[in-house]
Nucleic acid binder design. Structure first.
Lengths: 194, 194
DNA sequence: CTAAGTCTGTACTCGCAGTACAAACATCGT
DNA sequence: ACGATGTTTGTACTGCGAGTACAGACTTAG
């Protein structure tokens, strides 16, 4: 895969609603080309096919999330505060690009089939959260759970589920992403028991 | 779609590892036919295409989960105890049929595109959990969270994520599904704060 | 001002999803 | 026994659309 110019990358996003709505399988490459305003021949100059186009866009978003999460992790504050910042960042970037976000969440299978994407997913979601959980257990701001990975999975799971739900059935009583991060963390932090 | 005989349905499961591994897109209908030992013409007699085959299998699993969850909900015990039973059931059925479970989780996008499957998903996962959360808030065994839906999403999210992770990177230190339900609920119930 | 790389239009191949259809086979009511 | 109705399957086919081939235009830099 050649280095993709920013111009092309940005145009590709125009085709995302299409892909998110009907799935990659049902989306013809000519549709993508037309919607994005990129000639088919040019697409094939940069990518080897549909799969790679979507993978590129996923990688793009995951890298952006990983970068911003890394910044959020480096700020001042307790582990809990930074955890909140990281999760808020993840939610913000996922919802900001709703079509890409929902395509990504709806296609976890595709991600799990590509080692490169699995890496990016981990850098964007698991690793930062898991590190903060461990750190928080160290400084006492979080309890030491038996399996920090399980904690990060719980957080990741609630993040993507809440977003998926807003895609399936746009909830009127939930202001995504402004309220979501806060409410969600409240549940995850304090638990469900009284 | 005609009524699918049990014989056919059960044979179809043979093709699932294939689909889970390489995705439906890359799986040829002849491969499915060969692997399952069902003539292609017969497949098209019952289903209108690949999509519908997978949708049928998803529906199958989701209905089974909804049924057993409903049974678990009806047993004796506090809301919390029954919640544990429901979640354990969900995890058990998802992991019991690992290929189908991971195909389902990896393809949430496909599910969200089909109203019928969305319904089944809700009956299998959201509704029972959400009801128990509300019930628990009523009898005092759970705290009254602002948004019960968020609680059920958190639980559903952690369930599917933990399973997805074991698919991506089979963890040696986690005995799925025996330990999973317990550990996971511990995290979700007590929260991450000390 | 040429060489190497980028971009795009046009025309093509071909694999595979889905169709058509007829013949074999089963089931059942009368 | 027998027609009627539905099931099952083999074989042969059609057509869409992914991906390829390639030539010519256009850009950039050495």
């Amino acid at each position: 895969m050649r280095k993709v110019p920013a111009q092309i990358a940005s145009k590709l996003h125009l085709a995302l609603p299409l892909i998110a709505e009907q799935g990659l399988e049902q989306t013809k490459i000519d549709e993508i080309a037309d919607t994005a305003g990129i000639p088919k021949a040019t697409l094939y100059y940069y990518f080897s096919g549909k799969e790679e186009i979507l993978a590129f866009l996923f990688e793009d978003m995951l890298t952006a999330i990983a970068d911003e999460a890394s910044i959020a992790m480096g700020t001042e504050g307790t582990a809990v505060e930074r955890l909140e910042a990281v999760v808020a960042t993840q939610i913000r970037l996922l919802t900001q690009n709703r079509a890409l976000g929902s395509a990504l969440i709806g296609d976890l299978g595709r991600i799990s089939r590509s080692p490169a994407l699995v890496d990016s997913l981990q850098s964007a979601f698991y690793t930062p959260v898991e590190n903060l959980l461990i750190e928080g257990a160290g400084d006492g701001s979080l309890r030491a759970i038996a399996n920090p990975l399980l904690g990060s999975m719980t957080i990741f799971g609630s993040v993507i589920m809440s977003i998926l739900v807003t895609v399936i059935a746009p909830a009127d009583d939930l202001d995504v992403p402004n309220d979501l991060a806060g409410e969600l963390l409240d549940v995850v932090m304090r638990g469900l028991l009284p």
